[in-house]
């Protein structure tokens, strides 16, 4: 554990909680892509199945349980409790175009051809593109609320910090996981355009040009 990973994890946690609180407090999920949230729920579920097979640390276990719990709570709020406010018409990204190629890639390129390992690989690849329905929705409606941009910023920051974490681990532990690194770079790059807008507009709600 190093400082980049710890802050990265906390940033990830902050993003998830910001989104949950935003929906809960405003009693609305307008502007939020339910599809991205379903993808994140799938990401956490397929990645953290190792909760059942291996114990890393109390920290690790607690964070995994919290991430999974929050992901499903978010999906529940969007599709059940506040579904009247869900903007399905604008959430029109075709997720099968992500899930199917990512599934194929996970079967082809992985560390070990075993059930849990392929699911882990699938989750890593899927996470790198899971935000696309959300970004697509913002580009389609042309706007995002301030709080939604904070959510996206924390999520992007988490991934950027993980890149520093991997550089750290490579130098000090000789550790590197090529699959995680490549997917992490792809994921961070997807946020670059957003980061630029976030910083130049002071994080205020913005008009997003297509």
């Amino acid at each position: 554990m190093n400082i980049f990973r710890l802050i990265g994890d906390l940033s990830h946690l902050a993003a998830i909680i910001i989104l949950l609180l935003k929906i809960w407090k405003s009693r609305s999920c307008a502007g939020i892509s339910g599809k991205s949230q379903i993808l994140f729920a799938i990401v956490f579920t397929t990645r953290y199945l190792d909760l059942l097979t291996s114990f890393i640390s109390l920290y690790n276990t607690c964070m995994k349980v919290i991430y999974i719990g929050c992901a499903y709570a978010t999906v529940y709020l969007i599709y059940m409790k506040f579904r009247a406010t869900y903007d399905g018409n604008h959430d029109s990204f075709r997720v099968e175009f992500l899930v199917v190629p990512v599934g194929g890639l996970a079967v082809l390129i992985n560390h070990d051809f075993s059930f849990l390992e392929i699911l882990w690989t699938f989750s890593i690849y899927l996470e790198s593109v899971a935000i696309l329905p959300q970004l697509f929705m913002i580009s389609k409606t042309g706007e995002a609320e301030t709080i939604t941009t904070h959510y996206l910023f924390c999520l992007g920051l988490y991934r950027a910090l993980y890149l520093f974490n991997w550089i750290w681990r490579f130098y000090f532990e000789g550790f590197f996981d090529m699959i995680a690194i490549v997917a992490g770079v792809v994921q961070t790059v997807l946020y670059c355009d957003f980061f630029y807008l976030y910083v130049t507009k002071d994080g205020k709600g913005y008009r997003f040009s297509i």
């Binding site: 990973r5 994890d9 990830h12 990645r47 199945l49 190792d50 097979t53 291996s54 890393i56 690790n60 964070m63 995994k64 991430y67 560390h111 070990d112 075993s114 059930f115 849990l116 390992e117 882990w120 993980y162 974490n165 996981d177 995680a180």
Partner: peptide, 10 residues
Amino acid sequence: VIGRTKHDEL
């Protein structure tokens, strides 16, 4: 083999 590789990151 199920889950041979141990992943310690989140």
